[in-house]
């Protein structure tokens, strides 16, 4: 059994969590609202080579969803690691 983590360790855990949240949500915003809505017309001037997709259209109807999946996957891995760091090897949070 590990010891109860110190208040400093907890503060560090929470700070790291917030940093990751900020980073991942920025990507979330840029990809969906940025590429899919705000700059879609500019991106539509580019075509994905070898396909009929204009880039903005692709982001709006396909790409954003793939990126959402990646973001959640990264967060799952990061938080499992942060939990282990905080609890010293046992990330089992009931």
């Amino acid at each position: 059994m590990s010891n109860t983590p110190s208040p400093e360790a907890r503060a560090r855990y929470w700070r790291k969590n917030l940093c990751w949240l900020g980073g991942l949500l920025s990507v979330w915003f840029i990809v969906s609202y940025g590429c899919g809505i705000l700059f879609v017309d500019q991106l539509d001037k580019i075509r994905i080579p070898g396909t009929g997709f204009k880039l903005g259209f692709w982001f709006a109807q396909q790409g954003s969803i793939y990126v959402f999946l990646c973001l959640i996957a990264i967060y799952v891995l990061v938080m499992n690691r942060l939990d282990r760091e905080l609890l010293g090897g046992e990330g089992d949070d009931a």
Binding site: A60, Q61, S64, F68, L71, I72
Partner: peptide
């Protein structure tokens, strides 16, 4: 193309659910 509001709107919420 405007159909993207449903596609992104009804999937992007899961990022918020999972993270926040």
């Amino acid at each position: 193309r405007d159909g993207s509001m449903y596609l992104m709107g009804w999937t992007g919420g899961y990022v918020l659910l999972a993270l926040l």
